[in-house]
Design a protein around this nucleic acid. Structure first.
Lengths: 224, 224
DNA sequence: TGTGGGAAACTAGTATACCAGTTCTTGACA
DNA sequence: TGTCAAGAACTGGTATACTAGTTTCCCACA
């Protein structure tokens, strides 16, 4: 059963469906291997098949949804090759982008990043993990933005679901404290214009999310 | 007016439409700034709006097509920021992948690459530029394949249209001879397992496609 | 009881109808 | 002649209808 949220203002049905499916796939309400049908999802969301179908097609392009014509559609099982591709893509992109950022960041960009990190500290103190995660994503999106690579960031968002949902299953959750510290250090490297340092810090930062594939597979064999 | 080809066997209408639009956009039959309408394109292709619409949505995700609801849709004008993002993405991906390839290539992979390069030499001798281009794309796709990064390759294909169509406008055409030589050298670096060398060669190879933005803009101002 | 066939109930793909918003034209009126 | 309003003709977004292919199940028949 789908976990629904409200359709946002100025959000069309297709984007609403897409957002809903992504959320439900990452939080495992639509678990790996789950059989889905356009008409069933449409009914659950109170939409017609058209926007639902368009959303599923988009997810099938990154192999998060597998559509077998005239037979069935399925939320893709976890495929470690794709998880690794997803992780690889993020690593090389973020590490390239952070170097650019050191050269390209304007004072007001740095201000915005500072604001972001301060909010992260606030949410960390409040134990507001969800809000912290939003600011985390925000931080990385802002880096792509500064480097004028927003479209590349957008391009990778669906594909990253492969990695995101595995991270969510990880038994050892990454400590929020470490994440925020990382961001602060990265920001400091940007401020002092040390691209090599920033890149190294980013690599360390991203490696924190490494997951124990064997353990996850042992615990959730039906997801593979 | 659309330049049409046949619908391939086992290709559905949506993929047929998508392939057709991509071809027509790259070869400028659908030039930058061209106003398009779902129903018009559907009529030209002998399809209904549905598969045409699904294809246009996919192209709009990478900003090759701009859809303004209730108003009009347009083939995006050339945007150098996006061209640069497209070039940047290709460069960092190819350069990362080629390093992996040096470690991961199996003997039969190298055989296939050799076969490919031999065919390239054949088509070069025959002045068969179209076929050469196919083998060129094939060569790079194979590299991603060897590195187990096929999905990343697929992910970037639509986005690369930004770069591809500008390359097609470039006044100085890249010499086929150089391209084939580059491929041969890269293959040699792979065979002898020299990742650094391979990466450098790849960078040189990709830099050949650099385009003179100012000259193109001067010649085709209506495309910007 | 076991087997084969056919209808029914599903699937996704495609076509069409309808809706809502925008633009442009046209014609009546000042 | 200029202006403005009504409506026609478009746009893309959504809903629905229909098509073709697959699976399931059940019943007739051996």
């Amino acid at each position: 059963m789908l976990r629904l949220s409200e359709c946002l203002p100025r959000e069309n049905s297709r984007d609403y469906a897409l957002r809903t499916f992504k959320e439900n796939i990452i939080n495992m309400d639509l678990p790996p291997g789950c059989i889905i049908s356009e008409s069933d999802l449409a009914a659950q969301m109170g939409l017609s098949r058209t926007p639902v179908r368009e959303a599923l097609i988009e997810l099938s392009k990154v192999k998060i949804v597998e559509i077998t014509p005239q037979k069935f559609s399925m939320v893709a099982r976890i495929n470690y090759d794709l998880v690794e591709e997803s992780r690889f893509l993020r690593e090389i992109l973020e590490c390239s982008v952070i170097e650019l950022v050191c050269d390209m960041a304007a004072p007001q960009d740095i201000e915005q990043l500072e604001e972001n990190v301060q909010l992260q500290n606030l949410y960390l103190a409040r134990n507001a993990s969800d809000q912290l995660m939003v600011m985390d994503n925000n931080f990385h999106a802002k880096l792509f933005d500064i480097a004028h690579k927003s479209q590349i960031y957008a391009l990778t968002q669906n594909f990253s679901i492969h990695f995101d949902r595995v991270r969510r299953l990880a038994l050892e959750s990454v400590k929020d404290l470490k994440i925020v510290e990382d961001h602060a250090k990265i920001l400091e490297a940007i401020r002092t214009n040390q691209p090599k340092q920033a890149k190294e810090l980013m690599q360390i930062h991203l490696s924190r999310y490494k997951v124990d594939a064997v353990a996850i597979r042992a615990k959730y064999p039906e997801y593979f």
